[in-house]
């Protein structure tokens, strides 16, 4: 699983500046287990944003937001409400934020940071990759992770080495920043390219011993039954 934590509320409010109609997406997979994006957290976020004067156009907690197919089938009945919104706030890991951004033609804001577990195990992943950097940048980059999509992991823009949209380092893949440009253009957010992303706190990318200890940390936080052997 991927472990996430909610971003500070002030940071989320900053992302939503100038936007009134917000749709909230949660995930009943790892985010539910992390208690960052399950139904209780989505409802709590709805209440907090409403107290700040935002109109919540709707919300949905999807089983496995990391799966594009599930995102699409879960949101289709709610399409009108999603599309009347100014933006979508996603309470999930970096993978779910990126699949949402890939499936929804609206600005998508990250509501969580993904914490590094020292390597991920065993989820079904699509093409989206989350580097578990602990300080999600997806708001700057249209929901495409620059650490994962750019070979050099550059945060402020392309290196200039691409040819015909292909990466100079690995020509078999597209230039991540050209993808980011296209996405920002598509969602009317090209101004984000002018925002300076300050130096990153890489120490947030180092897993704590607690995170390294097990991949089923969230389950172990429950009644402990998973630790019991079979006698």
């Amino acid at each position: 699983m991927l472990r996430s934590e909610q971003k500070p509320f002030e940071e989320i409010l900053g992302y939503l500046e100038g936007e009134n109609m917000v749709f909230i997406l949660g995930c009943d997979g790892c985010a539910q287990a992390s208690q960052t994006g399950g139904l209780p957290q989505v409802l709590e976020m709805k209440g907090r944003l409403e107290r700040e004067g935002k109109k919540i156009t709707g919300y949905k907690v999807v089983d496995f937001l990391c799966q594009k197919a599930l995102v699409a089938s879960a949101l289709r009945p709610l399409e009108d409400r999603v599309m009347e919104s100014d933006s979508v706030l996603v309470l999930c890991c970096g993978v779910g934020i990126q699949t949402s951004a890939a499936m929804i033609l609206k600005p998508v804001h990250p509501g969580c940071n993904t914490i590094n577990l020292g390597g991920s195990r065993g989820e079904w992943r699509g093409s989206e990759r989350c580097m578990e950097c602990g300080d999600c940048l997806l708001d700057y980059t249209g929901g495409i992770c620059p650490l994962a999509a750019c070979s050099k992991g550059l945060r402020n823009g392309a290196c200039g080495g691409a040819s015909n949209g292909r990466c100079e380092v690995s020509p078999e893949k597209p230039c991540g920043w050209e993808l980011i440009y296209a996405r920002l253009k598509e969602t009317g957010r090209l101004d984000m390219l002018k925002k300076f992303v300050p130096p990153k706190a890489w120490n947030k990318m180092r897993p704590t011993p607690e995170m390294l200890s097990t991949s089923v940390w969230a389950l172990e936080q429950g009644d402990g039954s998973i630790q019991e052997g079979i006698e």
Partner: peptide, 13 residues
């Protein structure tokens, strides 16, 4: 640049 994306990115950067 050979793509619009690259050209516009260069100016923005």
């Amino acid at each position: 640049s050979d793509t619009e994306e690259s050209f516009e990115l260069q100016l923005a950067m």
